[in-house]
Computed example of a mutant assay.
Amino acid sequence: MSPREGMTRRNEAMGPRVTLANVAERAGVSPTAASLILNGRANTRLSDDARQRVLAAAEALNYRPNLMARGLRMEKSATIGFVSDLIATTRYAGPMVRGALRAAREQNHTLFVTETEGDLQEQDRAIEALLDRQVDALILATVTGRIVLPERRLPVPLVVLNGSAGPGEYLSILPDEEGGGKEAAGHLIGLGHRRVHLLGTSDPQHWTVPVRRRIESLLTEFSNADVEVVQISLERPVWDFEAGLDTATRAVTLHSPVSAVVALNDTLAAGAYEGFRQAGLAIPEDVSIVSFDDDDIVSFLRPQLTTVALPFETLGRRAVEMALNAGSVPSGELRERMVLQLRQSTRPARST
């Protein structure tokens, strides 16, 4: 049987859509009475017997309400638009979308997901297309940390996910990078390290809001504890394995001794593992490493990596909750805690 034949048979088995009028006829009530009962309207003066007949008829006929028509009547569509810059090409986006999908489903909403590939014209088109479909709210998500808000005032609530909307009418939900920086720095300070190499910095003009908060928090915490920080900047603006290998190699060859390292993400840390291995240094016996993300892609590292987790799934969930309750949430930023995942890549500083 071909796929086309299978679809035809499935459609035939499903039959025509059951309407409210069908339910009313089977229950022996008017369509208006059936609508009131199925929509849970109170104080209708309809008998309990009528209510039971309508509910039984709806179940027997497998009645599904026409959500589009109901949305037009109630000015609600039970849908949310999710516009992201780079969903398909960035693995971090998956947990954000998953959290948003689960939260929407729990709230009996459908999530419409679209990607712009960072094209601002495409972002505008996506937002207008979703508004044409009468979505109840919009989520504008970024995996790069860079956000450009719509120029016009929107008729529905808008929540910025994983980026800052700045001061104004819109809500933002993003990781608490300042708190994450304190967690990472505090861990190495508590282990007695007095000199730390920071891998992955770059020209501050290129920092997004989250990156700026992460780096500045680290530098502030180490400065307050009188810890020397050696910054090993990127030679190309990508936090990947090769950059981690390069920065670790330069740290050893140009800025020894190296005893404690903060890598600005887990992929950099993976490259640093290899760089230190090639230099004959063991982790954590010779070098302690702390990183950021808690990315499954580096779960193969041994010893396992101590890292500050980015709560992407929780962020997606919270964005939906904020979007559907925008009237009761003050505008501004909500920051989600980043938790240190303590594993085997750090140890107390050697006494001198």
Rank of each mutant, 00 (worst) to 15 (best):
D119K: 04
A129M: 07
V18G: 00
G181H: 02
L86K: 09
R194K: 15
T314M: 01
L310E: 03
M1C: 03
R317V: 02
I80T: 04
A141R: 04
P210F: 02
V211H: 03
S77H: 10
E228D: 12
L264Y: 05
V258Y: 12
E235A: 11
F222G: 09
D240S: 06
G163P: 05
G186V: 04
T253S: 13
T247H: 03
I127E: 06
T90P: 00
P155V: 04
L191R: 15
L161Q: 10
S233V: 00
S2K: 10
I283S: 11
A185H: 03
H109Y: 05
M7N: 14
H193K: 12
V148A: 14
R318T: 13
R302V: 10
D293M: 02
P157M: 02
N66Y: 04
V97T: 09
V97L: 13
N325E: 11
A78D: 14
L101W: 00
W239S: 07
P348Y: 00
G244Y: 01
L245M: 11
F312L: 12
A141I: 01
A243K: 03
M322K: 10
L342E: 11
R9F: 01
E235N: 12
G118E: 01
N265F: 04
R195K: 13
V261M: 03
Q344C: 07
A24V: 07
F292N: 10
T114E: 06
R98N: 12
L340K: 02
P150D: 06
T267M: 15
V252G: 11
R337G: 00
A88C: 08
F292W: 05
A272P: 14
R236Y: 12
R17T: 15
R133K: 13
A269V: 14
A319T: 05
P210L: 04
T19Y: 02
N325K: 10
S345W: 06
Q278F: 12
L36P: 00
L305G: 09
L46S: 05
Q134Y: 11
A103F: 03
F292C: 05
G118L: 06
G168Y: 04
S345N: 08
A165D: 05
T249S: 15
A272D: 11
V29D: 03
H193W: 10
R91S: 15
E336D: 04
L218A: 01
D286I: 02
A272T: 15
T201G: 13
S217F: 02
A263N: 08
V298E: 07
T8H: 15
S172F: 01
A137F: 06
D176R: 02
P330H: 01
V258I: 15
I37S: 03
Q52M: 05
M96C: 03
E333Y: 01
N108H: 15
R41L: 09
S331L: 00
R153M: 08
R98Q: 14
G40Y: 07
L342A: 11
T110L: 15
A349E: 10
A184K: 03
V227A: 02
R213T: 07
A50P: 05
A13Y: 00
G6F: 09
P16V: 08
A260K: 08
V211L: 06
E25K: 13
S345D: 06
L199I: 14
A57S: 15
E242Y: 08
N325H: 15
A21K: 10
R302W: 13
A88L: 12
L36D: 02
A27T: 07
D294N: 14
P65E: 09
E285G: 12
P284E: 12
T114V: 12
Q123S: 08
G316L: 02
V261F: 06
